[in-house]
Design a protein around this nucleic acid. Structure first.
Lengths: 78, 78
DNA sequence: ACACTATGTCAATAATTTTTGACATTTACT
DNA sequence: AGTAAATGTCAAAAATTATTGACATAGTGT
């Protein structure tokens, strides 16, 4: 679960949507502002539920908000 | 994060894909068999990363493997 | 009967995400 | 100057997901 990265364009989508603030988005999806910051900055990726909720806010398919970039693992860790 | 549910058709997709076993799917996405069991049975929903990986295995868009069902909270009747 | 595979479950632990509360910076407005 | 809003960061704790190892059941085949 560690060797793959997920990127998103939440920041751009926020501004496309009338410059919605992090605080407002956080309230709309029911998490704290820090969670939105962390996801936007790529500190970690959200749960599936949160990803669905965020996509919902922007009325876009999940895969247009979040993209999965596969990192090839070189060996199985066990 | 509490008032929404996520369902999936992993079990059906496994059988559509040559009766792929839970063990094989687990190995393909790099988690244990128990994790696949728990997700299939709806004990909890996967991380976004794992959801992407599973969709990848079945070569389907994430939203055709997992569906998000919004539970109305009291007061919000939309 | 015995072995084997696939599925399901349980409890304890590890790993990751989210919360809480605090504080700093920048920008804009009076 | 001072105030407020928006963003960013940090650390500790809570909540959720994933792992490990064990065991149970049903089905298949020998």
């Amino acid at each position: 679960m560690a060797q793959c990265s997920i990127s998103n364009n939440i920041r751009r989508l926020r501004f496309d949507h009338d410059e919605m603030t992090q605080k407002v988005l956080a309230e709309m999806v029911g998490v704290t502002r820090q969670t939105i910051v962390a996801i936007e900055k790529g500190k970690y990726s959200p749960t599936l539920e949160l990803a669905f909720k965020i996509s919902h806010v922007f009325k876009m398919p999940l895969e247009e908000v979040f993209s999965y970039i596969k990192n090839e693992e070189k060996g199985d860790t066990k």
